[in-house]
Amino acid sequence: MSLDNLDIKILQLIQENAQLTIKEISQKINLSMTPTHDRIKRLEHEGIIEKYVTILNRKLLGNPLLVYCSITLDKQQKNHFVEFEEAIKQFPEVIECSIVSGNYDYLIKVIAKDMEAYNDFYQKKLSSLQSVAHISSSFVMSEVKNTTVIPLY
């Protein structure tokens, strides 16, 4: 995989606005529409462009509370990891989940409408998982930076 300057410009543009048309992109990078379209299709085919999404405002949609939870499993066994991961995938409140190194096993990002809703999620879903030994919650007071843009050099 080798990206040239035009590929990088295309990727920067569509990260900022995925609704740009081929015509608009081609005008911005000074390339005709057919080669611009071909480049985008190649980037999609190579998996560099995974998908196009719409980013919604969680606060305006009634989920202003953002919580990061550090999760430690009771045993470092494959079946515990599998059980936890399968359960987490079913919880719509969890918008991100990563296996991490360090003092805990997972870091999850949770959204909720308020503290009561988070507490309900915590007690009825998260802490009820058999494989979970410890949960530490950190409540976001203010977001300093929140972006989906990947830097391209």
Rank of each mutant, 00 (worst) to 15 (best):
N5H: 09
L6A: 08
L6E: 08
D7N: 04
D7Q: 02
I8D: 03
K9P: 05
L13E: 00
L13C: 01
I14C: 02
Q15V: 02
A18F: 03
Q19A: 09
L20G: 00
I22Y: 04
I22A: 03
K23T: 15
K23C: 03
Q27S: 12
Q27W: 01
N30Y: 07
N30Q: 14
L31E: 12
T36G: 01
T36V: 02
H37R: 02
D38C: 02
D38Q: 14
D38L: 11
R39P: 00
R39Y: 06
I40L: 06
K41N: 15
K41S: 15
R42D: 11
R42E: 13
E44S: 13
E46A: 10
I48Y: 09
I49C: 07
T54A: 13
T54I: 15
I55K: 13
I55H: 13
I55L: 15
L60G: 13
G62P: 07
N63Q: 09
P64L: 04
P64W: 03
P64Y: 01
V67Q: 06
V67S: 07
C69W: 06
C69A: 15
S70E: 15
S70Y: 15
I71E: 12
I71K: 10
T72I: 02
L73E: 02
L73Q: 04
Q76W: 05
K78E: 07
N79R: 12
F81S: 06
F81L: 07
E83G: 08
F84Y: 14
F84Q: 04
E85N: 09
E85D: 10
E85V: 05
A87N: 15
K89V: 06
K89M: 12
Q90L: 14
Q90G: 11
Q90I: 10
F91P: 12
E93Q: 14
E93C: 09
I95A: 14
I95G: 12
S98N: 13
I99S: 02
I99E: 00
V100E: 06
G102Y: 00
N103S: 08
N103V: 04
Y104S: 08
D105Y: 03
Y106P: 03
I108F: 11
I108A: 13
I108N: 08
A112P: 03
A112M: 05
D114H: 00
D114C: 01
A117H: 07
Y118D: 00
N119C: 04
D120W: 05
F121H: 08
F121V: 09
K124S: 12
K124Q: 14
K125R: 14
K125Q: 15
K125V: 03
K125G: 05
S127V: 09
S128L: 11
L129H: 02
L129V: 13
Q130W: 09
Q130Y: 10
V132L: 10
V132R: 04
A133N: 15
H134A: 04
H134S: 05
I135F: 07
S138D: 13
V140N: 00
V140C: 06
